[in-house]
Design a protein around this nucleic acid. Structure first.
Lengths: 214, 214
DNA sequence: GCCCCGTCTGAACGACGTTAAGTTCGTGCC
DNA sequence: GGCACGAACTTAACGTCGTTCAGACGGGGC
């Protein structure tokens, strides 16, 4: 009686194909090119068929966004294992920021959909802790840096938030062209991110004025 | 022969009404509610009429975005004259960041259109210097702080960029709901911005480790 | 052999941005 | 005063979009 199982496999397969087609279309043509009809044509089905697999366009895009956050988390975590052997906690924290920015410039359309579309916030959340996965990793990294005495006693959650905000803000401003007078190339941008990660924890270093007052 | 002048005045008047209707619609119903047909209905003209005043929807939205950047600049500059008497340069710099964030939470739809729509970057630019107006003001403020000895010698352009990125990033993350686990209310958010502005120049204070190395 | 049910499609609906053709009407000219 | 011009505006349509629904197809169980 393997017929039901085979049917289910085929269903999951097509569902996967639709999501992949949507992702490719998004990457190749941006958000305006992401239409149900275009997706349908790419998987060689009628547009109506998609609605047998997804309630509406929103649900399909949600799925794409979800995989996007998965990719982002993978990128950041790969950077963590790459630098885990040699780098200090605070340097790893900086490396996380750079990995985040690199993902954004390498997948601009993806990144924009993930953060600009309304109602995508819940997809950045770790299913276990109800909070963005990488954010928790960043918090842990700041905590480790504090415990190792690399930086002064600061609130790790608050400081991870600062780092996220700083990198995310510079990234979105860069992607939307608002930094074109200051930052011209991707290399310039990555230098800026490097500076930014450095400068944000300069104030936490032991002996910095006002660092313990926060 | 004032007939041509009157015609021109009437043209400008209707053009203004269309922009205002678009702005109101955007504020009331967000970007999805901003359709040419809805704008036309609000000014009580046929949709086709709008095309006698604007080449296409893009040009009309550009005009709305332009006024948005004007409002943002006014908000920030009003804060500057309010604090100009009493505050130090570095505190005024912090006040600029808070004013920016306040504008965003008070005009979320406006703010999102200004920064999320593709090709809006040029509207943030001062017509004289080819750069966002408030950004130049922030650069000047950092420079004044350096000259007054309030902070260590840092690159003012670079540091103003950091401040912009930090505030902008936290703001967009907050508006898109990605901070909902950390920041619940608008008051929480404004507290965060206050912290952020403080912490970003803590590292520039005289005697901070590594501040002169950057 | 028949029927059922899951799968899929063609055709349509309403809303969208946009355009071409046509109507109205005040104005300047003879 | 009558006429022609041109600006202002509308009507109706085109092609696109997301979405729905009635029906066609076809393999599996009785």
């Amino acid at each position: 009686m393997g017929v039901a199982e085979r049917r289910e496999r085929e269903r999951a397969e097509l569902r996967r194909q639709i999501i992949d087609a949507a992702r490719d279309l998004l990457v190749e043509q941006g958000l305006p090119g992401l239409s149900m009809r275009a997706i349908a044509e790419r998987v060689e089905y009628s547009p109506a068929t998609i609605y047998l697999y997804f309630r509406d366009k929103h649900e399909l895009v949600d799925e794409v966004v979800h995989t996007g956050f998965g990719m982002l988390a993978e990128t950041v975590e790969a950077e963590l294992v790459r630098t885990g052997e040699t780098a200090s906690a605070i340097d790893q924290y900086g490396a996380m920021g750079r990995a985040y920015a690199r993902f954004a410039v390498e997948n601009p359309a993806y990144f924009r959909v993930m953060f600009e579309l309304p109602g995508t916030a819940e997809h950045s959340c770790d299913p276990v802790v109800e909070s963005p996965a990488d954010f928790e990793a960043a918090v842990a990294m700041v905590r480790r840096a504090v415990e190792a005495g690399e930086v002064d006693a600061v609130d790790p959650r608050r400081m991870a938030l600062m780092g996220w905000g700083l990198v995310h803000g510079l990234t979105t401003l860069f992607l939307s062209g608002h930094l074109s007078t200051e930052i011209r190339s991707t290399d310039d941008f990555m230098d800026l991110i490097e500076d930014a990660m450095k400068s944000i924890y300069t104030g936490w270093k032991p002996g910095a004025p006002g660092a313990e007052a926060t």
